[in-house]
Amino acid sequence: MNKPRNSLARIFRVPLILLAVSLAGLVTALLVEGHGDVIAALAVAAPVATILFAYFRRRR
């Protein structure tokens, strides 16, 4: 347990990126139609992909 303490910036770096990306995706999907929808949905998928990645990373 002698790991160095994480700073607040470090702790919230990924969560803040996910928050910004998913909110941008949720709003963009409302503003655009067609191909734009897919890109917006990919942004909404970022947290889902992150969670699945974290789950499967150490499973093997």
Binding site: L18, L23, P47, T50, I51
Partner: peptide
């Protein structure tokens, strides 16, 4: 970020999952 303490105890494992899922899906 994303680290889950699977081996220590069920309690810590589920705490880490709870935190990971919650914070990632916050938006």
């Amino acid at each position: 970020f994303g680290e889950v303490r699977r081996e220590k105890s069920a309690r810590l494992k589920w705490l880490d999952y709870h935190n990971l899922l919650g914070v990632a899906a916050t938006g």
